[in-house]
Nucleic acid binder design. Structure first.
Length: 230
DNA sequence: GCATTAATTCTGT
DNA sequence: ACAGAATTAATGC
């Protein structure tokens, strides 16, 4: 049953899927890999001759400038697939893939993807498309938001979307991590979060942010007029 | 295993 | 850019 209110779908820069059982049939065709926290998984220019199904942990996908600046594009959690865009397009990786939380993943060779998954598993083919589409939506949403919305609105949408995507009100992200994701100066993020905190929308915990009034954030996003002024 | 110290990260000014 | 607090990693016992 649907709610009486239509809820707006927000594409949060956090790609993960709860349902992974469809992969069970082909897991034996891949092999397990694990990446420790803070390690680099792939760098720009690396060949993409396989894809990875992430089973646990969190990866960060970032674009980097020559002088070391990094802009996070999105985070990837369990159920998401890494490397399919590069592999299908026969291009090297464009991005820096690093490990935020220690990961376990299954690697599937291009041969397995082409000859087994695409050929004999339509439900998994669809998964790959959904995964790719998610990345596409995330990036376009970010462009739109940064073009049309204020910082508090962008942060509000980000927090709201992330809560829905994660099914949790606990968001284990530092101000700096959020700033990198949204393309906002870190201090601006800190100040905006303080505002939200004073307005009773959230609390800061030892390891990130805890949303206390998700409805207020939802309302704030929709009318675009915060009850928050400085 | 436990306590100290050194390093790094985080956040407000 | 800087400083104080807070985490985390490293070291020695």
């Amino acid at each position: 049953m649907d709610q009486d209110t239509k809820k707006e779908v927000l594409d949060a820069p956090w790609i993960a899927f709860d349902e992974q059982s469809e992969w069970d049939a082909v897991l034996h065709l891949g092999h397990k890999v694990s990446w420790p926290r803070k390690s680099t998984v792939r760098s720009p220019g690396d060949e993409a001759k396989s894809i990875f199904l992430i089973r646990s942990g969190v990866l960060k996908v970032a674009a980097g400038s020559r002088d070391g600046l990094l802009r996070t594009l999105w985070l990837m959690g369990p159920g998401s697939v890494l490397g399919e865009a590069a592999m299908f397009s026969d291009k090297p990786y464009h991005h820096h893939i690093t490990v935020v939380e220690a990961c376990e993943a299954y690697e599937f060779s291009k041969k397995v993807v082409m000859e087994e998954i695409l050929a004999h598993h339509p439900e998994l083919s669809r998964r790959l498309l959904v995964n790719l589409a998610s990345k596409s939506y995330v990036t376009s949403t970010q462009v739109e938001d940064s073009a049309f919305l204020t910082v508090p609105q962008r942060l509000g949408r980000f927090l709201y979307g992330l809560c829905l995507a994660r099914h949790s009100l606990q968001l284990p992200l530092s101000h700096a991590a959020i700033a990198e994701l949204l393309g906002i100066h870190r201090v601006t993020v800190s100040n905006t979060i303080s505002m939200f905190k004073k307005a009773g929308l959230l609390d800061e915990t030892a390891h990130g942010i805890s949303i206390t009034d998700i409805n207020a954030i939802a309302a704030f996003i929709n009318d675009g007029h915060p009850s928050i002024h400085h």
